[in-house]
Simulated scan of single mutants.
Amino acid sequence: MDVLSDAIAAMRTGRPHSSRTARRGPWGLRFPASDGAGFHVVLQGSAWLLRPGAADPVHLGPGDVVFLAHGYGHGLADHPATPLEDFEPAPDGSWPEPADPGEITADTTLLLCGAYRLDRARAHPLLTELPEVIHIPARIGCHPQLRAAIDLLGSELAEPRPGSHAVVAGLLDTLLVYLMRTWWLSERPEGTGGWAAALRDRAVTAALQAMHGDPARPWTVEELAAEGGLSRAAFARRFAALIGRPPLAYLTWLRMTAAGRLLRETDTPLRSLAARCGYGSEFAFAKAFKREYGMAPGGYRRRTGQGPGQARRSPAPAPGRP
């Protein structure tokens, strides 16, 4: 897997939800804070994004996309002064069916909104470094894949057909990838450091792709440096400066994050799981896991209750910086 795919897989949990709704002014919606992330697309008309404590509201025109990666509460309205009505999702996170809008006229605002459930216990920096609000304005000829995913999702929600339930879920996952790819590769400000700079650095990116592609391999710093065409010392300095931790420390984080996900979601035996995560023995794996999570793998599996036939609960938070 590539870095972005791994970052999303490490956090995504549950089923995403979405809704296509029509509003006529005056209208206003207040979305509560959550552990997930959400997006809004203005298909027709316009809207204002309102954030508590923010200096200015954000105006959204036709085709504009806004992505809120950190689950902060916010409002959406036809005008900044319009009172907001609370939007309440169902206990399972699903969204209520929108009322029949009747005839769509020129003064109707059409919105496509969605939400993702995320496990933030071990959030990948690719998500934690995202700004509070990502606004992707509509521009002719820009981001065709993102626009295509939005069009397909809007069409399925407007006219459900056989198989739409599965199609919508798949399109929502696809849309999340396109939203993040669009930001990291096209929309982020030039000159930013951290992961934005890392993804522009060929040597660091090559090493990241190698680790994510085969995390079980017993990588050395020399081998990772060779992937990027650098000397060991130069690579180690550059990697730590951009990623925020040494190469092998990142590899351990990557392995342990995958191990936590497998323990929560599968009943894979610990010996097999240790091998998949790059450890030669169950003992070495258990020692590394306990150092990272503060408990033994078996205890973590029982506590999170993610094996087949067990009730799904939120995973225990992991200590330390993600």
Rank of each mutant, 00 (worst) to 15 (best):
D2E: 08
V3A: 11
V3P: 11
S5L: 08
I8W: 08
R15N: 13
H17C: 10
F31K: 15
F31P: 08
P32H: 07
A37Q: 05
A37F: 01
G38T: 12
Q44H: 11
D56Y: 12
P57D: 03
P57T: 03
V58H: 15
G63N: 09
D64Q: 08
D64S: 07
L68F: 01
H74Y: 06
L76V: 04
L76C: 09
H79D: 14
A81W: 13
A90R: 15
A90G: 05
P96Q: 05
A99I: 07
G102S: 06
G102R: 15
I104W: 05
T108G: 05
Y116R: 13
Y116Q: 09
A121V: 10
R122K: 07
H124T: 07
H124E: 03
P125F: 02
L127R: 12
I134V: 13
I136T: 11
I140D: 15
G141W: 05
H143Q: 14
Q145S: 13
L146V: 06
L146P: 01
D151T: 14
S155A: 14
A158Q: 14
A158C: 06
H165R: 15
V168A: 11
A169D: 15
G170Y: 00
L172Y: 12
L172H: 11
D173K: 11
L176F: 04
L176G: 06
M180L: 14
R181M: 09
T182M: 06
W184A: 02
R188Q: 09
E190M: 13
T192L: 15
T192C: 14
G193M: 09
G194D: 05
G194S: 07
A197L: 09
A198P: 03
A198H: 06
L199E: 05
R200P: 00
A203W: 00
V204M: 02
A206N: 09
A207L: 02
H212F: 01
T220H: 11
E222K: 14
L224Q: 08
A226I: 01
E227T: 02
L230A: 12
R237Q: 13
R238T: 00
F239C: 07
R245W: 00
R245H: 04
P246G: 04
Y250N: 13
L251E: 04
T257H: 09
R261W: 00
L263S: 12
L263E: 07
R264W: 02
E265H: 08
T268C: 14
L273G: 06
C277S: 08
E282N: 13
Y300N: 05
R302E: 07
P319H: 03
G320P: 00
